[in-house]
Design a protein around this nucleic acid. Sequence first.
RNA 1: GCGCCCUUAGCUCAGUUGGAUAGAGCGUCGGACUACGAAUCCGAAGGCCAGAGGUUCAAAUCCUCUAGGGCGCGCCA
Length: 612
Amino acid sequence: MRPAAAPGIPPPPMIRDLVRDLFEKALARGAAAGRWPAASIPVTVEPPRDPRHGDFAVNAALVLSKAAGKPPRELAASIVEELRAVDADGAVASVEIAGPGFINLRLAADVWFRGLAEVERQGAAFGRTGAGKGKRVNVEFVSANPTGPMHVGHGRNAVTGDVVARLLDWSGHAVTREYYVNDFGAQVQTLARSVHLRYQELHGRQVVFPPKGYPGEYVVDIARAVKAADGDRWLDAPESSWLAPFRDRAVEHVLGMIREDLEAIGVGRYDVWSSEKALYQSGAVERFLAELTAKDLVYVGKLPPPRSKKGAPPPPAHVAAIADEEGMTAADDLTLFRSSQYGDEVDRPVKKADGTPTYFCADIAYHWQKRQRADKLVDVLGADHGGYVPRLKAALQALGHQRDDLHVVLIQMVNLTRGGEAVKMGKRSGNVVWLREVVDEVGRDAARYLFLTRRADAQLDFDLDLAKQQTLDNPVFYVQYGHARIASILRRAAEAGIAAPRYDLEAVRRLALPEEQDLLRRVLSFPELLAGAALAFEPHRVAYFLQETIAAFHSYYTGGKRTGERVIGPDPVTTAGRLYLCKALQQVLANGLAVLGVAAPERMESAPVDEE
RNA sequence: GCGCCCUUAGCUCAGUUGGAUAGAGCGUCGGACUACGAAUCCGAAGGCCAGAGGUUCAAAUCCUCUAGGGCGCGCCA
């Protein structure tokens, strides 16, 4: 087995590409001969739902029909003629025109059988493609404020972002994984003040803890560390003297916790830790503001009164009252970014009334700077940041980039349950469920896998009891069991003195059962699946693929018990072919699980519960 | 009030970016082990794809509207 595809050498084309190439040639040939106009609408090549319709269904005649001025079925017949002409190798075994004008084709059996050689040749790298063409992609994920440990929602973000990054890597992108640390601004100052309160407490003082402070036990730990290092020197010092050092110390401590949390959920590597504070200190934000001014993208003006949270806009007096509470007035002149010209609802302030830059300002400066380092940006954000996306895209566009240079993966809420009962959560009530508690309880594999069993933008019910169950109700268990089961068959074969499975064309040609044909097609579609999941930024597709694939194997295997078609059978050549299929399947499962960051065990640990 | 996301079998959800007769797990009912892991599998029942229009050869998928649920909508970050 080879560790990875050598850089620069493109992996062999996927079988679907082979078909696509044939059609491109055929369509070009026909167009040159004047039989139909050159194709403008993309032609799709898809495996049909019903395998009886063949290996691939192509809609070329349907999409070309109007331009060619011929009925689809008639056109399809012409296309098939051209197809035959370009298929010098005889890759296409049979073609038929079906339904409204689909061209259904079946490839020569050997095309599939020969494709199986790739699994052995590429081993742990099988599934890698060059679909991304080396494009530089920056994936920013988690980026939780350094004000406390990660909670469950951050965990879903972390796993999704991590697997998106892995998928992009597997599909031939140059990936940078990045964490943006919001170590500047009000929230980390609030943390610093909370630490100072605990610090006073530790010196025996009575303190009143404000409702907006951070209540966690770790705040006391930080205060204790400060006390141990500095004694009482900050006790009566003015806030201006201790705020920054307390903040920096607190941020450093909390980032340490976050790194441990990430490690626990299996996110071991970030390439870049970006600091908001550094962005300010390096002068990048100021330079960026100057750039905006130079490009006439900002102006000084008034913001329309904010809308009320519910119902119709409130009377102006009420707005003014709210504004006063926060120490500002709606009448102040602000520096506004012309985001409404680029698809945002309103212009957004980049400078507060006191002249300091807003968070938004620093953030677009950050994205602008990131865009210099990468061709494509991916932000994995909590769904509560959904409203923030249009202005980020607007900013990129205003700065001369494409809106689509930024793709945002929105992570919807996680509802924790235990045996179906909701686990109460909420920052206000103080009973947040930390990610670490969940990982400690159910294990990393189950946590990761279950986070990936839904589309990112759909809410996820995460049942703690289910995650721990060693039954097929638990998808991670089901998939891991399948891998172990195959490993067991291969072990059994080795014990019986059968040579380790190697690719052999004669042997794999024995894979003639419908179930075997289905399984080998699944194996060979794996690279394509990963590429598709990567380009769509949808990790859940991998989880579903693994479940469906292993289910197909279980069915094949158990069915074999009834029919007598066993993997290890009387005929050595058939046995060799089937063992190779098992090995290929095992490799695909292992690689798929590797992409998800989930272990692929050779055997399951615990014994069955129901002893007789 | 406005924006984004969601609505598919009794429940939880997929649906390959617009393809042929809409799938899976759970649950229900009925079955399958004297040999490769029954931690598995097979079968049955279960659907107006929230509703109404539109776009086209073709719509669960795209557009508009309506109804429900969620998340947002600050000179916070």
